[in-house]
């Protein structure tokens, strides 16, 4: 069960990490959109989170019901230890493979 993370999964885990206590589905989608500048499919975000939870990388809790949403509570995600480890391993892997290569690639204006 320790297969490497896909790009989208990394984005999801990062977003959950960044959002801290505020990591529910729509917020994760918004976070990824604002940071990557590309539209994401909410369906993919929710199923992705679901999948990561199934793999034991995320855990979820239901928040308190809020008004105006049919009284349904939001589901908040946070990283499990396995998720943190997995994400750290992925960053390490990217760092190592990317080491010194940034200059070899054309610079992008603005960046993300």
């Amino acid at each position: 069960m320790t297969r490497a993370l896909g790009e989208f999964e990394m984005l999801l885990l990062f977003a959950v990490l960044r959002l801290g206590d505020d990591g529910y589905g729509a917020a994760v989608a918004a976070e990824i959109e604002s940071r990557t500048g590309r539209e994401v499919a909410h369906g993919a975000v929710y199923t992705g989170l679901d999948r990561l939870e199934a793999r034991g990388l995320l855990a979820s809790t239901l928040g308190t019901p809020t008004a105006g949403r049919g009284g349904r509570p939001r589901r908040y995600y946070r990283l499990e230890a396995a998720g943190e480890a997995s994400l750290a391993r992925s960053i390490d892997a990217i760092d190592r493979i990317a080491d010194g290569m940034r200059d070899a690639l054309p610079q992008r204006d603005g960046g993300s």
Binding site: G25, A26, A29, H42, Y46
Partner: peptide, 14 residues
């Protein structure tokens, strides 16, 4: 189950 509802809610809110 309820996760489908959450997705719908999220979409609706957005």
């Amino acid at each position: 189950g309820e996760r489908a509802g959450e997705l719908c809610d999220g979409l609706a809110a957005e």
